[in-house]
Design a protein around this nucleic acid. Structure first.
Length: 428
RNA sequence: GGAGAGGUAUCGAAGUGGUCAUAACGAGGCGGUCUUGAAAACCGUUUGCCUUCACGGGCACAUGGGUUCGAAUCCCAUCCUCUCCGCCA
């Protein structure tokens, strides 16, 4: 969410930002919200002065009552009543206008970083850097569910009967591998100085609207029936929400946290042929990292965050690349975002395994996360990034560590979490 | 889930319809006096948001409504915390 004052003073920047994000349909909203804001402030000013008058008279009434001068008090009461109707009318206007302003402000996207490439959609995202050799072996790599089945590692049929499409049972070694990856990722981040955290897996609606745009909310979040609770789509939601309505001392920044949680997503939208199996699912587990920092530090943290994910994947012998989201593909709250993509030797292309975002002060403004600095209070910046999110990550893992004989290498870093074994041998 | 108590500033806590809500009182923090230094003592200071060029004004006592000329105080709803009981991994 933008600062209303900023919009008022820089309508042209806000409009150019909309054009950069190919959201021309929102252009009229800028002038509209400035107009509504000015009417809102006018109503507030008039109402405030009426309230000031009422307060003064009420005090006088109190004094007169104290002295037992009831008749004079009654006279003054009439004066207050005279303005009551106008005040009620103004108060209604104030509320109505303020609601309209907020509603529009919630739909105006954050100002993107100047470094973000301009493009309409994900087809115009820009590759930044590649790490490792994207090897295509001389034997055929099966579809990931097929690899898992060779280890009796997945039961999608049962999951379908129990919970429906988009769920899974991981079994045996594959399930163990899943947990090993999460545990390794947790320790990897702890070693890099992040504080480990297990957060709530459900959050209230006010936190939901604080951390994401309406469009995202509708497409992602599961609501608990009869309660003001939503299942989290990522622990970022509860981790950023942790700081709602707080004032953090500047010396305490940055807050660097790594959290584990299951993630629940509706995944509204088309499911392509490449999204069978455990690629796009309603429930997965994720190790996440988040940072709350000073505004001037957020670009630095952004680079550190995505680098962590690259390093983690490289330590498991998985080639990756970073892809910068172009303006049109960037969610409304984000200032800048990189996807981390892993190499798929089967598809001979990279696919998304993580997403690193700098939200600027957008979440902080919505959630009122402020910093007490030497020169006054200001909104913090927030960032988040995937450490690792299996089971999707297992697709990359299995494809890249598969041998011609069907066995799967366990990279050295994972062995302590896998009972020391170096290789998974298929049962079939 | 049942019964009870409670939610006021950084913390503890007073205020139960007005004339002490920025808010008593106590503690903590910050600045100062005193001291070789420290402690103690003493003095001062210590919420946030909105609005205004400014002076100023408004709002906030968990949250949202209501009653009233006027609400921390009375009424209704919701949330949270604590104690006891029940249930439970």
């Amino acid at each position: 969410m933008l600062d209303m004052k900023f919009v008022r003073e820089n309508p042209d920047i806000v409009k150019q930002n909309l054009r950069n994000k190919f959201q021309e349909e929102k252009l009229p909203l800028v002038d509209e919200v400035i107009e509504l804001d000015s009417r809102s402030r006018a109503a507030k000013q008039e109402a405030d002065s009426l309230r000031a008058g009422r307060n003064t008279i009420s005090k006088q009434i109190g004094a007169l009552m104290g002295q037992g001068k009831k008749e004079e008090a009654e006279e003054l009461k009439k004066q207050v009543s005279a303005n009551a109707a106008r005040l009620a009318e103004l108060e209604e206007q104030e509320n109505e206008l303020a609601d309209k302003v907020t509603k529009i402000m919630m739909t105006l996207p954050n100002i993107i970083d100047p470094s973000v490439p301009i493009g309409k959609d994900d087809s115009e995202n820009v590759e930044v850097t590649k790490y490792g050799d994207p090897v295509v072996p001389d034997f055929e790599i099966p579809y990931h569910t097929e690899i898992m089945e060779r280890f009796d590692g997945i039961d999608l049929d049962a999951a379908g009967r129990v919970a429906g499409n988009g769920f899974y049972y991981l079994m045996g070694d594959i399930a163990r591998l899943h947990s090993a990856v999460i545990s390794y990722a947790r320790d990897f981040m702890i070693d890099r100085g992040f504080t480990y955290c297990v957060p709530p897996f459900m959050i209230r609606s006010n936190v939901v609207t604080g951390v994401m745009s309406f469009a995202e909310m509708d497409a992602m979040m599961y609501k608990i029936e009869g309660e003001d609770l939503y299942l989290i789509g990522t622990s970022e939601h509860s981790m950023i929400g942790k700081f709602i309505n707080t004032i953090i001392e500047e010396e305490e920044l940055p807050k660097t946290l790594t959290s584990y949680s299951p993630c629940f997503r509706k995944e509204k939208g088309a499911h392509g042929i490449e999204e069978r199996g455990v690629y796009r699912i309603h429930q997965f587990e994720k190790q996440e990292m988040i940072v709350v920092c000073k505004p001037e530090d957020s670009p630095m943290w952004f680079d550190k965050l995505w680098q962590n994910t690259v390093d983690l994947f490289r330590s498991m012998d998985i080639p990756v690349r970073t892809l910068e989201c172009c303006s049109g593909d960037l969610a409304d709250l984000k200032v800048k975002s990189y996807d981390v993509e892993a190499w798929s030797p089967r598809q001979k292309k990279y696919f998304e395994v993580g997403s690193c975002s700098n939200l600027g002060d957008a979440q902080a403004r919505r959630l009122k996360i402020r910093v007490n600095g030497k020169d006054g209070k200001y909104f913090a910046h927030t960032l988040n990034n995937t450490v690792v999110a299996p089971p999707r990550m297992l697709i990359a893992f299995l494809e890249n560590n598969l041998n011609a004989d069907g066995s799967v290498n366990i990279p050295e870093v994972l062995r302590p979490y896998m009972g020391g074994i170096e290789k998974l041998v298929p049962k079939k």
